[in-house]
Amino acid sequence: MNLRYKKLEVIGQGAFGVVHKAKDTETNEIVALKKIRIGNAEDGVNISAIREIKFLKELNHPNVVKLLNVFHHSQNINIVYEHCKKDLEKVIKDREIMFSPSDIKSLMQMLLEGLNHCHQNWIIHRDMKPSNLLINSKGILKLADFGLSRNYASPSHINTNYQYTNQVVTLWYRAPELLLGCKKYGFGVDIWAAGCIFAELLRRQAIIFGDTEIEVLSSIFEIFGTPNQTNWPGFSSLPLTNILTFQENQPIALTDLFPAASNDLLDLFSKMMKFNPSERISAQKALEHPYFKNEPKPTLPELLPFFKN
């Protein structure tokens, strides 16, 4: 048994194994310990574990969860992360917590900073959603779970191997190009998901949802209108565009969707939710957007309203 980490309670059950809260007896730090089973005899070490380790070792940013250690123990790989008390999904669902416009600005800024760091290192996260955004006791938001991530530079992009299906990103946060069967995509899929999270922070519930790809697409088109060749060149040649037919919808005015939101916020939001992936704003440009410079200023992380108890 590895004696360095003393397991405390279970804090999560991921697709690849259990996550424990644990105490590092060398540093007295509280950490998160993720146990990944090596899998069956035919597959060897889980490829998601390899991705996660590879990418987290490359990334080093306050808004990306820190990998502290990796070790083998019996049939498992154990990954040690810095411990974060909460995730954004729990925070959004907690009706006791109220967000001010400054709080939302602060969360979005941290999210985009983390995302920008990934993109600068040519890494697409591919699974942005509130439950993968952790928040530590100082209120700092951190991107986690790189088990689906991918190097953008990877030339195997063009291949149609099973890795590169459009089956990435949890359904509700999945960008329209993925839902329409596009197999070549870029950083835009992360930005779309970030936009969905933005909306969820404002509305305290998801604006796009559905149980199937078709339902999610309809949900998107009901809000943003049905795309066409003009606002999305290449739309008509996407794999599923010809198979599916959608009702012609007109976009809803964003001021109806978010009546309390400021104009700069709506402008940034609309740029994150562009149908055409190449028109979608980059994380870096989003951070330079006036929304983050204008009043009210983003709340300091330690003053975010999560840990009042």
């Binding site: 035919e42 070490v45 490829i47 991918r150 195997s156 191997n161």
Partner: peptide, 8 residues
């Protein structure tokens, strides 16, 4: 696996 070109 490292290079995302997995083989069985």
């Amino acid at each position: 696996k490292i290079d995302e070109t997995p083989r069985r």
